[in-house]
C-alpha cells in the first residue's frame, strides 16, 4: 500500500504549481489552467482519502466537484471570450479599465 502522506505531498505540490501559474502569468487562459490544477489537487485528496478511509463519500464529493468545475470553466471561458472581444486581448493587466 502506498503511504498516504506521499499522495498528500503530491497534491500539495500540484496546488502550489497551480498557485504559481496563476500568479506568474497574466493571461486569462493560464488563469483557468491554474484553477484546473488546483481543482485536480483537491480531487486527488478526495479520492485518496476515500480509498484510505474506505468511505464512499469522498468519491461522491470528487464526482460533484468534477462536474461543478466543468460548469465553472464553461462560464469563465464565456466571460473571457466576451472580455477579449471587447478589449482585444485577455490580459488581466487591462482589468483596471473596469474601475467605476
Amino acid at each position: 500500500m502506498i503511504d498516504y502522506s506521499w499522495i498528500v505531498y503530491l497534491s500539495t505540490f500540484l496546488f502550489a504549481l497551480g498557485i504559481i501559474n496563476i500568479l506568474v502569468k497574466k493571461d486569462g487562459i493560464n488563469f483557468i489552467i491554474g484553477i484546473e490544477m488546483i481543482i485536480n489537487a483537491a480531487l486527488i485528496n478526495f479520492v485518496s482519502g476515500s480509498a484510505y478511509l474506505l468511505n464512499e463519500n469522498g468519491a461522491v464529493y470528487a464526482l460533484f466537484t468534477l462536474v461543478v468545475a466543468a460548469l465553472e470553466t464553461t462560464l469563465i471561458v464565456a466571460l473571457l471570450l466576451l472580455y477579449s472581444s471587447r478589449t482585444g486581448g485577455a490580459l488581466f493587466s487591462s482589468l483596471r479599465n473596469l474601475r467605476g
Partner: peptide, 28 residues
C-alpha cells in the same frame, strides 16, 4: 477509483481541454 478516472477522462480530457483549446485559438 475507476469510475472517477473515467469521469476525469470524459469531462476534463474530453471537454474542458477542448474548450480551452478553442478559447486559446480564438484569442490573439
Amino acid at each position: 477509483a475507476v469510475v472517477l478516472a473515467l469521469a476525469e477522462l470524459l469531462i476534463y480530457n474530453g471537454g474542458i481541454t477542448i474548450l480551452l483549446t478553442l478559447a486559446a485559438s480564438i484569442e490573439p
